[in-house]
């Protein structure tokens, strides 16, 4: 129980099921797994990145950890306490200690509240008395916004300004864990740097732990201690960031990292292309779920679900983990590489 080395977060075999299709009338409702059994843990002061295909379950996983999405199996333990079965009332005190930055910056702010009130809303919800004006000014300046914006409604902000209001809200109460869903999408690289440096400062001073979801692989490389790569609701590779970047072992990881657009118009690209056909969550592929698109797939990859293998300090869900820099075989079933 809460000892010196308590994990701030432990997630075990987590699953989230969605029912889709017509709720009334004819037609069948079907069930799909948005998150299909994932586990990881997080130490205070550490940063864990979630990357992966669009639609692979990152936001769903984040919302589940934050208690905003009911889970269908598994356990979530925050600082030694199981939280996945808490109701809203018992979850409330924990919201002082963990917060979320939402992927949709404008949509996550109530449209009828002004920025000044939005930034300090958490204090009011939790009945914490502070000098609201001073606190608003402090939080806004931390995210590079001036007091000019306090009288505006969310839709009167630029996309990046709304994103920064979300960041200010999430750090207001000095939480121990922040779950940041695309915290820098829509920010220019300079302000992106400011936001990430701010979070790093909180990490160093207050031991903030963070789950960061981002499609910006350059950001991941710089800020994350560990990372997981998601595909169809599962982790295909999880481990230390530098190991994964220097030698991706799962074919999906290798393809993802090779695609990263570089800011150099003249640079030749050496990409591992994937076939366009993304499998359906309603009909998951048999065996290795990546085999339908894997440039390295062998005859029997569709027969057997791969056991996780250990490569260095990583767990990799592939029967034939890649060597460093290994290229797809010449007869791979994929499109010819672009450029």
């Amino acid at each position: 129980m809460p000892g010196i080395m308590t994990k701030i977060l432990e997630v075990e075999d987590l699953e989230v099921a969605f029912r889709i299709g017509p709720a009334f009338g004819i037609g069948q409702r079907k069930e799909l797994l948005g998150v299909a059994g994932v586990g990881f843990d997080l130490d205070p002061g550490k940063t864990f990145a979630l990357v992966g295909e669009s639609g692979s379950g990152k936001t769903t996983l984040a919302r589940a950890v934050n208690g905003l999405q009911a889970i269908s199996a598994g356990r979530i333990v925050f600082d030694g306490q199981r939280i996945d079965d808490l109701d809203a009332r018992r979850m409330k005190p924990l919201r002082l200690r963990m917060s979320m930055m939402f992927q949709d910056p404008v949509g996550s702010l109530s449209p009828r509240m002004k920025v000044g009130d939005l930034v300090t809303e958490a204090y009011r919800i939790h009945g914490i008395d502070v000098d609201f004006r001073a606190e608003t000014e402090r939080l806004l300046s931390l995210v590079g916004l001036s007091m000019d914006v306090t009288d505006r409604f969310p839709h009167q902000l630029s996309g990046g300004q709304a994103r920064r209001v979300g960041v200010a809200r999430a750090i207001a109460l000095n939480p121990e864990l922040i779950i940041a869903d695309e915290p820098t999408a829509g920010l220019d690289v300079s302000i992106q740097g400011e936001v990430l440096n701010l979070l790093n400062d909180l990490r160093e001073r207050l031991g903030l732990a963070m789950i960061i979801i981002t499609h910006n692989l350059h950001v991941v490389r710089h800020v994350a201690d560990r990372m997981a790569v998601m595909y169809l609701g599962r982790f295909v590779e999880i481990g230390p960031t530098d190991e994964i970047f220097s030698a991706p072992a799962h074919p999906y990881t290798a393809a993802l990292l090779s695609a990263n657009p570089e800011p150099d118009p003249d640079r030749a690209k050496d990409r591992i292309a994937l076939p366009a056909e993304v499998p359906s969550l309603l009909h998951r592929p048999e065996g290795c779920e990546f085999h339908t698109r894997c440039p390295w797939a062998r005859q029997d990859c569709g027969d057997e679900i791969p056991e996780a293998v250990i490569v260095g300090q990583r767990r990799v869900a592939c029967r034939f983990p890649l060597e460093r820099g290994e290229r797809p075989p010449a007869d791979s079933p994929t499109d010819p590489p672009t450029k």
């Binding site: 669009s54 996309g159 499609h215 990292l257 695609a259 657009p261």
Partner: peptide, 15 residues
């Protein structure tokens, strides 16, 4: 197109 690829992973962004 106003920032149409912010939520796309690198593979999809390139595609």
């Amino acid at each position: 197109a106003d920032e149409p690829t912010t939520a796309l992973d690198a593979t999809l962004e390139v595609a």
